[in-house]
Amino acid sequence: MHYKEIEPGARLKPYVKCYYTYESDAGAAFEDTVFPSGCMEMIFNLGDGLWQTATQGDFVTHPAIELWGQLLRPLPVRSVGKHNMLGVRFFPHAAAFFLNDKADLFNDRVTDYRHICGSSAGQLHNRLLETVSWQQRIALVEDFLWQQLLRAQSRTGKVTIVGHVMQELNQPGFFDNIENVAARYGITSRYLQKLFLQYTGLTPKLYSKIHRFQNSLQLVIRKEDSLTAIAYDCGYFDQSHFIREFKSFTGFTPSGYSPDQSPVTLATVNS
């Protein structure tokens, strides 16, 4: 597997966390689990391989253009065949610019983005298939996203508020309550909760939990600290609280988890 992250161009840096390419040479099928990340993603499948998601016991094949909503729980997936993929990882608040519905409607599922955006998304996919250079492919995607962004400028003010609040929540040692945070922006906490759900698919509390979990996941993978130290460094009440929350997002206890069990996680960690 070959995974590589690419920085977005200047005009899309406030919205796109990164682009990434994912290529696999081996065609052997394997199963994996994807964990909540706090980000929504768009993935263009440009190879012959298939990705599938476990839904009610059956595996459902992903569409040519995948929109990954916010995951609130671990999601089993299966890879079949060789892959050639181009992904867009949005900042948590920014995917709302490229959706016609509330972000929380896409939680815990993979949606065909062509059903959201229409024929222009399908035309982009065809052009990507005809283009060999990754640089040219990313340029095509950037132009497409920029046009979508221009059509959604009426949302800018509200999305900006959500983005600023997320920056506050991400600060080390943040302890303020949501009522005080909302008051700093001249809105009620109830309205802030509504904005979060609409534009990120998450509540502020759940976003903070996922952000904390992702920090702990990186430390668990490094295996440099004890579970007690990781729990303390990531702001958990105690080790049992850390273990319980880690398992809810991965299906594993921290001591029972290894990135070797997850080819997708291992590829991203070693990028």
Rank of each mutant, 00 (worst) to 15 (best):
K247P: 02
A182Q: 07
S79D: 02
S258N: 14
T160V: 12
L219I: 07
P63Y: 01
G122C: 07
D48K: 13
Y20V: 04
P14E: 11
L145R: 01
L150K: 13
G87K: 00
R155V: 05
Q153G: 09
T268R: 15
L75S: 09
P263F: 06
F242T: 01
A231G: 09
T21W: 09
V132R: 15
K247R: 15
E168S: 13
T228K: 11
N84L: 13
D143E: 13
A54M: 12
F246G: 01
F175I: 12
V110T: 02
Q136S: 14
P14I: 09
T21P: 02
G157V: 15
Y257Q: 07
T268C: 08
L197I: 08
K205Q: 13
I138F: 07
T33Q: 14
L140K: 03
S240H: 12
K17I: 05
N84T: 09
L202R: 04
H125K: 08
H2L: 14
G81F: 00
L227D: 09
D176H: 13
K205M: 11
A229P: 05
N100G: 14
E41M: 13
T253K: 10
F106H: 12
L206K: 13
K13N: 11
T33P: 02
L266E: 10
K17P: 03
L128T: 01
V77R: 00
A29K: 07
P204N: 04
Q52D: 09
Y113D: 00
L128A: 08
E130W: 10
R11M: 12
F59C: 03
Q123T: 12
S271H: 15
L46A: 06
L99E: 02
E31C: 06
A95Q: 02
V165Y: 01
S119T: 14
G122N: 06
R109A: 09
S255D: 13
L46S: 03
D108Q: 06
R114E: 12
L217A: 09
F91L: 15
D25V: 13
P92C: 11
Q261E: 10
F237E: 11
T268A: 12
F44M: 08
R212E: 04
S248I: 07
W134I: 11
G186S: 11
D260P: 04
F237G: 07
P254I: 07
F175R: 15
I221W: 06
D58K: 15
Q261D: 11
A103L: 09
H62W: 00
I116P: 00
L46T: 03
E130F: 09
F91T: 05
G173N: 09
H62M: 00
V34Y: 08
T250L: 05
K247T: 14
A95F: 02
T268I: 14
C117G: 12
A94D: 04
G163S: 13
G235C: 09
N215A: 10
S216W: 02
Q218M: 13
F91A: 05
R73W: 05
I6H: 10
M40I: 11
I187G: 04
L195E: 01
V34S: 11
Q193G: 07
H125T: 03
G256V: 10
Q153P: 04
D108P: 02
I6G: 03
A229D: 09
K194M: 10
R11H: 15
P63I: 01
R114N: 10
T131L: 08
Y19P: 00
R137V: 04
N270D: 13
V77I: 15
D143F: 05
F242H: 06
Y15A: 02
K194C: 06
Q52Y: 01
R127S: 08
